[in-house]
Nucleic acid binder design. Structure first.
Lengths: 126, 126
DNA sequence: GTGAGGCAGTTACCATTCGTAAGTGACTAT
DNA sequence: ATAGTCACTTACGAATGGTAACTGCCTCAC
């Protein structure tokens, strides 16, 4: 049995080397951004939404409770930041950090995949 | 034999049009591949693992019960297929379909992101 | 100045899902 | 016969998620 590749240096653009079966950083990342509703929330924010209620209204089925919880998790991961504007009434903006905006590439990859393979079918366009 | 799938990194950021805040296909996709353990399982399979126990052993913390459940969900989405070899004893291989292999692009995007922004830190080179 | 309604959440409660552990049946090695 | 592997399934308590109601604070209509 041969195990190698658990240490990954830099394969950003080189996918010739085989993928390691497990990678802790990847695993953490996929569990964070793959959490329930999280993908949809990040997409909504990437599209420009910053207000709590704009996000809830944009995502069918998403409740206040869930959004509040996910936003806290995303803040803990430095993916979003909460900005309070001292206006009246107080206005809160949730903004993506650079780290959060960098998820645009992931969202685009998922979107491309979702469009090419729409739903449990093997029939492909073309 | 032509294998295409892992090498499809050409379309990841060329759309200038703004992202829609919500997209049902994207949402479905992100909920499927972002399910608990699913990202890790797909990565392990992309790396070449096909056996049930190889996958459980490759992913720390993953239990038989979870793998069994996730594999069924992935089968239902036509991302993996279950192949039974009539040997003795019976040998079962889980293989990625073309749809599943196409997730390589997503896995690569997440891996790249995870490596660039390792963990709740804003400090970065550059 | 009373009532309706929006914003940004929190709290309460119950259902679903997850994690841990143990069991199953067919086969293999000692 | 006993122990071990493989590919699962079952049981059960714990954690998470969904639904809905409630909180303050503010604005708008009457």
């Amino acid at each position: 049995m041969v195990v190698k590749g658990l240490t990954m240096g830099n394969n950003q653009g080189m996918d010739d080397e085989p993928l390691a079966p497990f990678c802790a950083e990847y695993h953490h990342a996929v569990e964070v951004i793959g959490g329930r509703w999280t993908g949809a929330i990040v997409r909504a924010m990437l599209s420009g939404l910053t207000r709590f209620s704009d996000i809830t209204h944009a995502i069918p089925g998403l409740s206040d409770r869930m959004l509040s919880e996910r936003l806290k998790a995303l803040e803990a991961e430095s993916i979003v930041e909460r900005c309070v504007a001292p206006t009246t009434p107080v206005r809160i903006d949730y903004r993506l950090t650079e780290k959060g905006r960098a998820l645009g590439a992931v969202v685009n990859a998922v979107t491309a995949w979702a469009e090419e393979y729409p739903r449990a079918t093997e029939a492909r366009a073309g």
